[in-house]
């Protein structure tokens, strides 16, 4: 009765291990297949959603704002699946936003950097040295992105319960380590940890709703009570508060909404020069 969240430097390796873990535990596997549903719901292309998870650097096709929006849709869907319990989640960047839920076992699968560079060079037909450079750059960009977006570095080992390197350990052995670890009493759901997960899911739903009009909003939920922080000018305060409350209060599960207004100094300064 737990949730296993597996992340990896290489998606395919993580996927293999996650599927085997799900099979061994009799849990449901939640992978990138759920992105099809998200794409249909929000009329997006599935590739864009995958890019939002995988691609580190902002591109012309994928601005930071768009990426933030796509990640919000993915979060909503993943947290919705997690409420069902007994799942193995992988490849959906859940390690970045499912935090503070004690019955989630967070595992990171590490791939030998040299082997990874060799495989990358072979697949993309380039020298190993160039592949190493590219992978190092990508890693740095992902670190920067996770830090700016989720306020922590995704390579920080303290954000995971367990990290297993596949350089010496076989994938099947990694699966056995994970399945044995998750059986520990500490990964069994409690009322409090289930409440934490429900709060995260509710906050994600509200955030998606506010995303179009108020993309800078941050949402915290606590048992149906919401605290929404939003950026804006003082003169807009009352109007914006009312609009946010109206939107949020219609969502099932919301009891009370409190809007905290953060003064947007930069916009204020920009407008004062007009």
């Amino acid at each position: 009765m737990s949730i296993i969240n597996i992340s990896s430097d290489v998606y395919e390796e993580g996927r293999k291990i996650a599927q085997k873990t799900a099979e061994a535990m009799g849990y449901a596997y939640v992978g990138r297949e759920i992105l099809r549903g998200v794409a249909e719901k929000y009329h997006l292309s599935e590739t864009k959603l995958v890019d939002a998870i995988d691609k580190a650097a902002p591109t012309l096709r994928m601005s930071l704002k768009l990426r933030k929006q796509l990640m919000a849709y993915i979060q909503e869907a993943v947290l919705g699946e997690m409420l069902k319990d007994n799942i193995v989640c992988q490849g959906l960047a859940a390690h970045l936003y499912v935090l503070g839920v004690s019955h989630v076992l967070k595992v990171r699968i590490l791939i030998d950097p040299e082997e990874r560079a060799r495989n990358y060079a072979q697949t993309h037909n380039m020298s190993v040295k160039k592949a190493e450079k590219l992978l190092a750059r990508e890693k740095k960009l992902r670190q920067q992105w996770s830090f700016s977006e989720f306020r922590f570095d995704e390579t920080d080992p303290s954000k995971y319960d367990l990290m297993v390197s596949l350089s010496q350990i076989d994938p099947d052995e990694a699966v056995r380590i994970i399945t044995e670890t998750v059986c520990s009493r500490k990964f069994q759901p409690m009322n409090y940890s289930e409440k934490c997960l429900k709060d995260l899911e509710l906050a994600a739903r509200v955030r998606v709703l506010l995303m179009d009009k108020y993309p800078s909003s941050r949402v915290q939920a606590n048992g149906g009570n919401l605290i929404i922080e939003t950026l804006g000018l003082t003169r807009e305060k009352r109007k914006r508060e009312a609009a946010i409350k109206e939107l949020a209060e219609n969502i099932p599960g919301v009891n009370y909404v409190e809007v905290h207004f953060i003064h947007d100094f930069f916009r204020q300064a920009a407008e004062s020069f007009r």
Binding site: L105, L110, P113, P157, Y160, L162, M163, Q168, I169
Partner: peptide, 16 residues
């Protein structure tokens, strides 16, 4: 602190 130097990294909290 680079995790890729190790075979296993264990965070002692929920894992006792």
């Amino acid at each position: 602190w680079d995790s890729s130097l190790y075979d296993l990294v264990i965070f002692i909290d929920k894992i006792t």
